[in-house]
């Protein structure tokens, strides 16, 4: 987790970086998310989120997506308005395709929201030799944006009740 904490301290200066939460999604929520286009799901009914909020500058989510044959662990930092602030690869395990760790590629996600299409090769540049990793991480970001948008709806409904 050290790399994750380093990333958090860089993205959210002043973050203590140890407030962690696991959010359980309901079956209906998972079905809603699964029906979305271009999202990669490996877990059946559970999404584990590890946000490090501490202050109102945002939160972060750590997740795994499968690349060609290995899991890619990545972190997405999101503002309270659910805009992507930053992306970082925490662990890359594939033999090839490590170019998704390049900052210049990751920077394309900054400012993206759930309403951006984020199509690999169209809205997010492909990297030759890293096509599979590009798709995996791009779909992962889409999944996280969709999940947080859905959670915000649930939480606002619960608060309103």
């Amino acid at each position: 987790m050290d790399r994750a904490h380093e990333a958090l301290r860089r993205i959210f200066p002043g973050s203590t970086g140890d407030s962690i939460v696991t959010v359980l999604l309901t079956r209906d929520e998972v079905e809603t998310l699964r029906s979305g286009k271009h999202q990669q799901w490996d877990a059946d009914s559970l999404v584990v989120l590890y946000p490090i909020p501490r202050n109102d500058t945002g939160l972060a989510v750590i997740d795994n997506v499968r690349g060609k044959d290995q899991m890619i662990t990545y972190l997405v930092a999101i503002t309270p308005d659910l805009v992507v602030k930053d992306l970082e690869i925490i662990a890359y395990r594939e033999p090839y395709g490590g170019e998704v760790r390049n900052k210049s590629w990751q920077a394309q996600f900054s400012g993206k929201t759930v309403s951006d299409p984020l199509r690999p090769g169209r809205d997010i540049m492909n990297i030759t030799g890293a096509t599979i990793s590009v798709r995996a991480v791009t779909f992962g970001v889409r999944k996280i944006l969709a999940t947080l948008t859905l959670l915000r709806q649930r939480l606002s409904q619960e608060v309103a009740r």
Binding site: M1, A4, D18, S19, I20, V21, T22, V23, V48, L49, Y50, P51, P53, D56, L59, I62, T73, P80, I90, A91, L151, R152, L155, S156, V159
Partner: peptide, 17 residues
């Protein structure tokens, strides 16, 4: 703001990765 409040409820160290 509500969302952030809810997210700060738990403190545990995950074994991620």
């Amino acid at each position: 703001l509500h969302m952030l409040t809810v997210l700060i409820i738990s403190f545990s160290y995950p074994l991620f990765a």
